[in-house]
Design a protein around this nucleic acid. Structure first.
Lengths: 240, 240
DNA sequence: TATACGATGATCGTATACGATCCAGCCCGG
DNA sequence: CCGGGCTGGATCGTATACGATCATCGTATA
C-alpha cells in the first residue's frame, strides 16, 4: 500500500531527506488511519516527540496538518485528540465522500481503460469470496480494504486534483473513524458487490457523465442508509 | 464582513487572547483573500514575523495552515509563495466549488426561511444596479462581493459542516486567485442575476433536493463555461 | 565567449528554554 | 458532609539560537 496512492500528502519537492515534521506527520497519519490510535485518544506533543526522537516543534506542525485534514482536533492549552468520538461525524463524512467520490468517478470515466475495468472486476471477485462460507468468517477490515482498492481504480484518474484530494481525505477519515462508530451491515455487502458490477457495466457502456456520477453517489448513499437503518439512530438525517 | 461568516477558521475554544499563530494566520489570510498579496508573491517567514512583531514559529504554523487550504505553497528550503499562478487552478477550483456549493445549497434548502429568501432577493436587486448605467461603471470586485453574500444565504444553513467548510474554502481560494487569472465576463452578469431569481423561486416552490442541487451547480458551471468561452483556452476541460 | 565551479548570503528546519495557561486534587471553612 | 478557593503538576505557546540547505553571483578556464 503505497502512501502516495492513498492520498498521503508528500512534500512537493521530492524526498531527499524527509524532514522531521514530515516524518511525524506520516507516522501519526499511519497510526490514526490504521486504527492504532483510537478515536478520542489524547496526543501529547512531548510524548510523541520523545517516541519519534524529535523535538516538539515538528510534531506540533504535523498535528496542525492533521487537524486541517480533520483527523485530529487541537485546542489551545488543551492539546490534541484523535478525532471521531461524535457518531454523527461518520454520517457527515460518508455524505461528503458520497458527493466527491461520485464526481471523481464521473470525471474519471472517460479516461478509464479496459485494463482498469478488468482490474476492478478482479478485485470485486476477490470481495465476493468473503461472502461464500458463512457470515462468521466475514472480515470487515479486509473487505473494506478491497472495497477501497476497487473504488480507487474508478476515481484515481480524476483530472481535478482538488476533488481527488477530497476523496482521499474522505476515505482516510472514514478509516480513522471506523474504530469507534463503524458498524458493518453484512447484508449490505452482497448488494454492494452487485452494484460494483453494475457500475463497471455503466462505465463500459460509455454512459453520460451525469448518470455515472449519480450511480456512484447512490452506491455510497445506500451504504449510509443501511447503516442508519441498522443502528436506528438519526432518523431525520438529510439525504443528498 | 465578519470573519466567521466567511469561513475563517477561528480558534475553537473562544478567543480569550488570540494566539499569535492565529493572529498571523488571520493577517495572512486577509492579505491573500483581499488581494493585497498578489498570487505568486513570495512570503518570507522572518519578514512576516517582523511585520507582525512575533517570532517565526507562529508564522510558520500559520503558513502551514494556509497551505492546507490551498492558499499558499510551501516548499522545503525554498519558502512560501501565494498560490495561484497556474490558470488551470482557477478551473479546478471553480469546478470543485460548483460541486460542493450545489450540494450545500440543496442541503440548506429545507431550512431556508422566507426571511432568508427576502434577504437574498434584496441582495440580488442590489447587484442588478451594477448593470444599469454602462459597462464601464461595472465593478467586478463589488459585484463579486454581493454575489458571495447572495449565495451565502443559500448555503449557510447546510447541516453538514464538512461540506460547508469546503464551500468556504472554495470561495476564499477563488478570491485569492482572482488577482491573476480572473476575467469577468460582463454579459454573464446579466444571466447570473436572472438565474439567482430562478434559484430563489425554485427553493420557494419546495422543489426536490436533487433539482435544487443541479440548478445551483449549473449556475456556477455556466460562469465557468462563460469564462472558458471568453478566454478561448482549455477547450477540452472536462465538464461535470 | 560560454561554461563549470566554488564562495557567499539568504532562508528554512529544528532544538532548547522559558513563560502562560489549564486541569486536578487538596485544604479549609461553612 | 459539602462547596469554594488555592496550589502543584502537566502541557501548550512562543522566543531565541544554531545548523542545514539552496539560490545566486563572481571567477577562472577551455
Amino acid at each position: 500500500m503505497s502512501a502516495a496512492a492513498h492520498g498521503l500528502a508528500a512534500p512537493p519537492g521530492g524526498e531527499r531527506t524527509a524532514s522531521k515534521s514530515q516524518l511525524a506527520y506520516e507516522w501519526l497519519h499511519e497510526q490514526i488511519v490504521a486504527g492504532a490510535l483510537e478515536p478520542g485518544a489524547r496526543l501529547v506533543l512531548s510524548q510523541v516527540a520523545d517516541k519519534l526522537d524529535v523535538s516538539v516543534v515538528p510534531v506540533r506542525e504535523a498535528v496542525r496538518r492533521l487537524e486541517a485534514e480533520g483527523l485530529v482536533t487541537f485546542e489551545r492549552n488543551i492539546g490534541a485528540t484523535v478525532a471521531g468520538i461524535d457518531p454523527t461525524e461518520y454520517l457527515y463524512t460518508m455524505q461528503t465522500l458520497s458527493l466527491v467520490e461520485g464526481a471523481a468517478t464521473a470525471l474519471s470515466a472517460p479516461s478509464i481503460t479496459a485494463e482498469d475495468i478488468a482490474a476492478a472486476r478482479e478485485v470485486n471477485e476477490r470481495m465476493r469470496v468473503f461472502l461464500e462460507p458463512d457470515p462468521l468468517h466475514f472480515d470487515p477490515v479486509e473487505f473494506t480494504a478491497l472495497n477501497r482498492e476497487f473504488h480507487s481504480v474508478l476515481f484515481e484518474r480524476c483530472p481535478n486534483p482538488h476533488i481527488l484530494d477530497l476523496v482521499h481525505r474522505g476515505w482516510n477519515r472514514l478509516k480513522a473513524l471506523r474504530g469507534s462508530t463503524f458498524s458493518y451491515v453484512p447484508e449490505r455487502a452482497t448488494e454492494s458487490i452487485a452494484e460494483h458490477e453494475a457500475l463497471l457495466a455503466l462505465i463500459e457502456s460509455g454512459a453520460p457523465t451525469a448518470e455515472i456520477e449519480l450511480a456512484a453517489r447512490r452506491h455510497r448513499s445506500a451504504t449510509l442508509d443501511a447503516y442508519l437503518a441498522h443502528t436506528g439512530e438519526n432518523p431525520g438525517f438529510p439525504t443528498l
